[in-house]
Amino acid sequence: MTALPRRGVIALIPDDCTSCLICVQECPTWCISLDSHTEQVAEPGARRPRTVSVLDRFTIDFGLCMYCGICVDVCPFDALAWAPDVDYSAASRPGLVQDTGTLASWRIDD
C-alpha cells in the first residue's frame, strides 16, 4: 500500500531510478532535474549488449516543490517516496536544492 503524503520530503531510491525522466516531465514547478548516461552491459548468452541508463545526479529544488506528489505517483519504478524528515532548511537559496546523496538518506515511510 502506498504511504499517504505526510508533507515531509520526497526521498529517492537511486538504485530503482532508471532515469526515464517521467518525473521531470510531469513536475508542475520544474523542481526536479537529473543527469544520466548510458552504458552497454554484456549479458551471457545474449547476442548484443544491453543499453542501460545510469543515473549520475538527481536533484529536487525544495524551494520550488509544492509537495503535490505527482512525481511519486508517476514513477513507474517507485523510486520516489514520501519521507517524514523536516531538517532541510537552509541559510542560502542554493541550499534548498538537495541532490542524490541527501535524497537517498531520508527515511522512507513503511
Binding site: R7, F62, G63, V86, D87, Y88, S89, S92
Partner: peptide, 26 residues
C-alpha cells in the same frame, strides 16, 4: 534562513529555529 515546504510542517519551523527535529517521524 530559508524554510522550504508547501507549507512547511510546524516541526520544520522549530527545526529551522533551533536546529534539530523536535518530532521524530511525526
Amino acid at each position: 534562513r530559508y524554510v522550504p515546504g508547501c507549507p512547511p510542517r510546524p516541526d520544520a519551523l522549530i527545526d529551522a529555529l533551533v536546529g534539530r527535529s523536535v518530532v521524530d517521524g511525526g
